[in-house]
Nucleic acid binder design. Structure first.
Length: 189
DNA sequence: TACGCGATCGTG
DNA sequence: ACGATCGCGTAT
């Protein structure tokens, strides 16, 4: 069942980051359907120095972070890569969750092709996930909660057996916060 | 207009 | 451990 507004409404970003573990991200492209179980996330809040929208800082790049929860914020980094986030708060707040890793459950062959034929470790990193799903700036600002959107979140009853929290990686500020969440195994209920 | 750096990845 | 590679944010 597709996730609806009530998954986000009135809830804080940290809790949403945890609850996204086990949810399925679906992409209906023109040519195929791709699905993966979200298994690693990182939370980024407004009062978090390493967040693009820290202190309400609003730029052309991070504009989508200030949209309502459920929108997809995709940014370009390191001159080569994209990272995908899900906006988690109300309009004007600027909080989001980075999708760091997924487990492919449908369209894996297509993902391998999208990853230039490299069949190993195809989706275990934020930019690897974007490459496998061919997500780029064209998808920035998509509303995952819209009934007609080609990308959306689905609850297919996968539940993490255990959620491991740890420090976020690849950042230089607020590194002490344990806002990275990982689930290694899931059970279907 | 100029410059330094980055929520990464792949190779060695 | 390190190089690739370029848009963005900040300073001039």
């Amino acid at each position: 069942m597709r996730l609806k507004e009530n998954f986000f409404r009135g809830r804080n970003t940290i809790d949403i980051a945890k609850d996204l573990l086990g949810k399925v991200i679906v992409y209906n492209s023109n040519t195929c359907v791709l699905k993966g179980i979200i298994c690693e996330t990182e939370a980024y809040t407004q009062d978090d120095e390493s967040c693009h929208a820290y202190g309400g800082r609003r730029t052309k790049r991070n504009e989508v972070m200030f949209y309502r929860y459920g929108h997809l914020y995709i940014y370009f980094t390191y001159g080569m890569y994209y990272c995908a986030n899900i906006v988690t708060d109300d309009i004007g707040k600027g909080e989001a969750v980075l999708i760091r890793s997924i487990i492919p459950i449908l369209g894996k062959n297509t993902m391998i092709v999208n990853r230039k034929g490299n069949a190993k470790d195809i989706t275990n990193g934020p930019s690897k996930f974007c490459m496998a799903f061919q997500l780029n700036k064209e998808h920035n600002g998509i509303d995952l909660l819209s009934p007609t959107s080609t990308i959306y979140l689905d609850d297919e009853s996968y539940f993490p057996k255990e959620i491991i929290k740890s420090k976020r990686i690849g950042i230089s500020k607020a590194i002490e916060l344990e806002w990275r969440f990982t689930a290694k195994e899931f059970e279907r209920k």
